[in-house]
Amino acid sequence: MTTAPTTLSVVIITYARPDYVRTCLEHLRELERPASEVLVVDASPDVRTRELVTRDFPEALYLRNDLGPGTMPESRQIGLAHARGDIVAFIDDDAFVEPRWADELLAPYADPTVWGVGGRAVNGLPGEESAGLGQIGRLLPNGMLTGYFGADPGRDLDVDHLLGATMSFRRDTLTSIGGIRGNYPGTCLCEESDISLRVRAAGGRLVFAPRAVVHHVAAPYDVGQRFDRRYLYYARRNHVVLLARNFGFGAPLLRRYVRTTLRVQRQHIDVAVRRLRGDEGRSPMDRARALVVLTRAVVELVGLVVGFPAAVVARRRDRIAGVGTP
């Protein structure tokens, strides 16, 4: 055991949500243990966030990501490249820290085997503190990932992956694995899991610290809505990329993920077709719901298929960048 790291860099990634950035920075000012530095990485198409940070929060370093929307991992990498703390923490612009967040996030790092620590994201949902207590942050045998990062098990837990809205890593660890990889576009799903799986593959432990709390208010997207068709498409596309990058195309995890996805979507399609034919449910509302289910299933299947050529491209880029693939 060693003493916990003493310096903390906090990286906020944002796109076109200056009002949320303001609240996020105001909460960071109230930390009982102040961050050593705060970095705001902005991919917005306008100057509102830049003007806000430079005018009202001079203690924060403003950085640009000129790649635009759908490039959250690239924003994280820009923040990492400029960070100087022993620990680099990443929070979303709509994740507002509680006063003891930094203390609780840093405490597990007293154990040198711990290379990453994530906090609890409270979403204001009924029962979230007890939902999925035994399944927090898991990579399942079928290749699926669990969440449940709003749960409170009452103690620190080892996990397989962390939530991007509130996660941290040893800066030296991230540097040693080649930094943060991009090519998780759209709603940027799975990009934080990619970091987590690579850290674990390098030999480090990841810890979920439920007393390190942020209030995740789920701000609206600039493009589309949360859990819309676009979200479903990228959920499947990026998941295939994640598994292929970290385990290879021949990995049992990837094969089981594909089989599970095909089985579930086939069930949805079968039910939807029966309802559209009038075999099950004859009201116009039943048929309208069936059409919604059918289009959702088709979108998810398209995302699954597109994930494979996207994974080929991602692995090729990884080899060129020298970060390696299995």
Rank of each mutant, 00 (worst) to 15 (best):
D156Q: 02
P99N: 11
L145I: 05
D111T: 15
E98C: 14
V88P: 02
G164M: 03
G150A: 05
D158V: 02
L125M: 12
G164L: 03
V114N: 11
V114E: 06
I91C: 10
G143D: 06
L133P: 10
P126C: 15
G132L: 14
P99M: 09
D93T: 07
E104P: 14
A89P: 10
V117D: 00
L105F: 09
L163A: 08
D94R: 03
D94T: 05
S130A: 15
P141W: 08
L125A: 13
P141G: 08
I136M: 02
A107M: 12
D111S: 15
R155H: 06
L163V: 08
G127F: 09
H161Y: 05
Y148F: 13
V117E: 00
G147A: 11
G119E: 00
L125Q: 14
P153N: 03
D111C: 15
G147M: 14
I91H: 09
G154F: 03
Y109C: 12
N142C: 06
G143T: 07
A95H: 06
P99C: 08
V88M: 01
P141I: 06
A131H: 15
F90L: 05
L106W: 08
V122G: 10
G118Q: 00
Q135C: 04
V122T: 14
D156K: 01
R120F: 02
L139I: 04
L105H: 09
T113N: 12
G132R: 15
F96Q: 04
G154D: 02
P112K: 14
F149E: 06
Q135I: 06
L162V: 01
Y109K: 10
E129Q: 15
D158I: 01
L163G: 05
G164C: 04
M144C: 08
I136C: 01
P108K: 06
H161S: 05
W101S: 09
V122C: 08
L133Q: 11
D156F: 01
F96G: 02
